[in-house]
Design a protein around this nucleic acid. Structure first.
Lengths: 108, 108
DNA sequence: TCAATCCATAACCAGATGGATATGGATTGC
DNA sequence: GCAATCCATATCCATCTGGTTATGGATTGA
């Protein structure tokens, strides 16, 4: 799946375990697979698999150092998501052709 | 699943068919199930099921008129998504404790 | 009233997916 | 060199999920 598309991003972040891993990397910075496994609530192979998917999606990068692999977040990859939500909201803001929208705006 | 949480929103928008329906509602405004089915590429029951999930997630609302049901988008429900991405980016911006981040910033 | 239309629900199926365990390669420490 | 550690891959399994067809209730129109 092509990285950095809304589809890939939504799919990658839809799983709670996977999203939690990404969140930890965003909050706490670079971490090894072992460190991520501690507290993930799932086995190490599962963590590795999720990290592989996050990497494919362009959301994380890895750095090999000896027998450890350090992963870190690439929050810039979230840009297409931001664009998408902005686009959807923009369509909403730009449309005033039904009564409900009109009433909502008059309500403000 | 509780509506309007990042988890529910990501899951709801992860499916391409479902997201396409939501996008159409955002772009083109209120539509009946029949109108949405035309061009969705899937059968009418599938469209109904997706609309049911989108409604549970708080992303759409429905309005019954005779034998038709009109659905419309509620893009305000995307707010938790926007907040979440902002939060992740904020963690990123606030951290300058490793060499790679430093180099990236010096690069700009 | 009766046929047709619109939509939701039910039942079912195939494939995707998240999880576990088993294993093995690479690296480190003794 | 050898045992131990770290991680990725392989295999397998149960469940979830997105799709189909079948059906039926409600409403409309003739």
């Amino acid at each position: 799946m092509a990285p950095d598309t809304p589809d890939t991003l939504f799919k990658s972040l839809a799983d709670p375990t996977r999203r939690a891993i990404f969140e930890r990397l965003c909050r706490e910075g670079e971490k090894t697979v072992g460190a991520l496994t501690a507290g993930a609530g799932v086995s190490q192979p599962v963590v590795s698999k999720h990290l592989g998917l996050l990497k494919q999606a362009g959301l994380v990068q890895d750095r090999h150092q000896g027998r450890q692999t350090h992963y870190s977040a690439l929050p810039g990859a979230l840009a297409p998501l931001v664009d998408w939500t902005r686009e959807m909201s923009a369509f909403w803001e730009g449309r005033f052709d039904d009564l409900e929208n009109l009433l909502k705006r008059m309500d403000q």
